[in-house]
Amino acid sequence: MQEFRVLIVDDEEDFVETIVKRLKDRGLDVTGATSGRAALELMDGKEFDVAVLDVKMPGMDGIETLREMKKKSPRMEVIMLTGHGSVESGIQGLQLGAYNYVMKPVPLNDLLKQMTQAYERKLIEQDRHRGGA
C-alpha cells in the first residue's frame, strides 16, 4: 500500500471518524473534515493527494466545495461520494474535474481501490507535467 495523503469530507461525523480510523489503520495519511469550509481550511495548512467528498452537505455543498478545492489545488484528485441517486450531480462533479463518483454506502475496499487509482493518476499527471515543463 502506497502511502498518500487523503482528505475525507462528509457532514456525518460518525462516518468521517470511522473511515479515518480505518484508513489510518491501512497506513494512509488521512485527515477528516465535517464541512466543506473546514476542508478548505485544512487544505491551507496541508497538501492532499486525494479527497473523498460527499455531494450533499448542509451549508457549502459538495459541488461548491469541489469548485473551491480545484481552485486551491488543481492537482488534487477528488472522488465524489453521493448518497443521492441523481446521476446529474455525479456528472456535474466529473465536469468540474472530479476523478469519479461512488454511491454510498460503499464497501471500504472498493473506495480504497478508487482512491489508489486516483492517486496513481495524480502521479502520472504530475510526471507528465514535469516532463512537459
Binding site: 456525518e12 460518525d14 462516518f15 470511522t18 473511515i19 480510523k21 480505518r22 489503520d25 450533499k56 448518497g83 443521492h84 441517486g85 441523481s86 454511491m103 454510498k104 454506502p105 460503499v106 464497501p107 471500504l108
Partner: peptide
C-alpha cells in the same frame, strides 16, 4: 423512493463503516 433511499444510505454507510472498523 429516491429521497428515502438517500436518507437511509447515510446511516447505512455509518453502520457499514462501524462494522468494518470492528472487523479491522
Amino acid at each position: 423512493a429516491a429521497g428515502i433511499a438517500h436518507e437511509i444510505n447515510n446511516p447505512l454507510a455509518i453502520i457499514g463503516e462501524k462494522a468494518g472498523w470492528m472487523k479491522d
